[in-house]
Simulated assay, not measured.
Amino acid sequence: MAVSENKARSLRGEIYYAFTPELLGERRRCALAVSRYNNAGEVSRRKRVELWRDIVGDKSPLPPAATTEEEDEELFAEDAWVEPPVHIDYGTNLELGDNVFVNFNCTILDTCKVTIGARTLFAPNVSLYSGTHPLDPEVRNGTKGPELGDEIHIEEDCWLGGNVTVLPGVRIGKGSTVGAGSVVTKDVAPYTVVAGNPARKLRDVPRGTKAEETSGAVAALERDRAAAVKP
């Protein structure tokens, strides 16, 4: 599909105009899809995935339904889990990896590309802002003036705490943790813990702890599963 020069500029992070009929229409489409997702109520995992794919413009077909509800849910075990309500600008500029969890009240302004890597976790109220505005107020000019932005990339296995804000042009490296309430204004190196406003490195991420095993959590889960299948 042909892309207008104005939209192409927006995706490249160059100055563009957001209140054109084309981009207004794309945001309206996303708003309606997000509304359906947020107001779906108690629906099956299959339906929730279908509604999410509508937001991001994923046209890939769902797998055939399984025999039981439990088996059907397993078909979507690797699909991202996004708790409503969620707030998204375009949807089609957003990519979530396998096994991502996004807690409620997340805001994603995907003016430019926004990617969230596999197994990354978001606490409530995380905000990703890939769009911004000119500093010159005469250029900014309310809804009549131009805007711009820059891509946001959050790599695999990250954890963002509650009320974290990520600004345009930021890359958060693989395996990193961002402390609650932080404002991330620049890149975060892989496997580091950062926090604050602006976020700064506190320490390296611990690795190889095997805490899920040494704490007894895995053994407890296995005992629960064994007990559940007894007649």
Rank of each mutant, 00 (worst) to 15 (best):
N197E: 10
V188Q: 01
I154V: 14
A219L: 11
G179E: 08
P168I: 11
D204F: 11
G131Q: 08
S176A: 14
P137S: 09
S127Q: 14
I154D: 02
K174Y: 15
G179H: 03
V126L: 05
S130C: 05
T209P: 00
V183L: 12
A220L: 10
T209L: 11
L109N: 00
V126K: 09
K174S: 14
A199W: 02
R207E: 14
G117E: 03
N141A: 13
E156C: 10
V170T: 07
L121A: 15
G149R: 03
V166M: 05
L128W: 02
S215P: 06
A219D: 11
G175C: 09
V188A: 04
E213N: 00
I108W: 01
G196K: 06
P134G: 11
G179T: 07
A211P: 00
P146H: 13
V114W: 01
T209M: 15
R207L: 14
V188K: 03
E151N: 07
V184R: 03
D157R: 07
T111C: 06
K210S: 07
A199D: 09
N125Q: 15
E222Q: 13
T115A: 02
N141R: 12
D150L: 01
E213T: 00
A195T: 09
D204V: 10
P168M: 06
K113A: 04
F122P: 06
E156R: 12
P146T: 10
G131C: 06
T115P: 02
V184T: 07
G175T: 05
S176C: 09
T214S: 14
E156F: 03
V170F: 03
E147T: 12
N125G: 07
E138H: 08
E151F: 05
L109A: 00
D136G: 13
V139R: 06
T209S: 11
V126C: 12
T165H: 04
Y191T: 05
R119M: 08
C112F: 01
F122W: 06
K201T: 15
G175E: 05
A217E: 13
R203F: 04
L167K: 07
E156Q: 13
A189Y: 04
T209W: 08
P146N: 06
K144Q: 13
G208R: 10
T165M: 10
T111F: 01
L148I: 04
R140P: 03
N125V: 07
L221F: 09
T209H: 10
K186D: 01
L148A: 06
A211S: 00
A199T: 08
H133A: 04
V188R: 02
I108G: 03
A195W: 00
P124F: 06
W159G: 15
S127E: 12
A199H: 04
Y129Q: 08
N163I: 04
T111I: 01
Y191Q: 12
K201P: 08
P198W: 07
H153K: 14
R203V: 09
T165P: 00
S127C: 12
D150R: 07
